[in-house]
Amino acid sequence: MTTSTGHPILDIIVVALALTGAFFMIVASVGVLRLPDLLLRMHAATKAGALGTGLVLVAVAVYFGEVGMTTRALAGVAFLILTAPVAAHVIGRASYASGVKLWKETRRDELAEYYSTHSPTLVPGSEVRQDPS
């Protein structure tokens, strides 16, 4: 099956990275499963998911070792880190605007005042009076 990388230390690093990666993936899934409301789940999925897969990608980079593979693996990690937060932002905004009910114990909701007074939807930078592009 997996051919070893030749020196045992690298094997151990690869396995360690892969295992921690997998562990964080589990964290992400469980987070999505058990957290009470959408926004909490969203941040769990984004952060833990990206970290978990990132670690696996690093493990792959370490495992192959040549330049081509490492750049590609790191590019993968970069893409993940780039896209995950944006996806979270976008879906969070949409859900919040459509009035998803927050967790009953939420202490402070700083966004609430922007939504209730101005408009059903938040116009970007509306707090800074600038006409929408």
Binding site: M25, A28, G49, G76, I91
Partner: peptide, 15 residues
């Protein structure tokens, strides 16, 4: 959100 997570996990799976 769950599907997005699945996407990310799929990337890990393929890696």
């Amino acid at each position: 959100v769950a599907v997005d997570l699945l996407g990310v996990l799929a990337v890990g799976f393929m890696a």
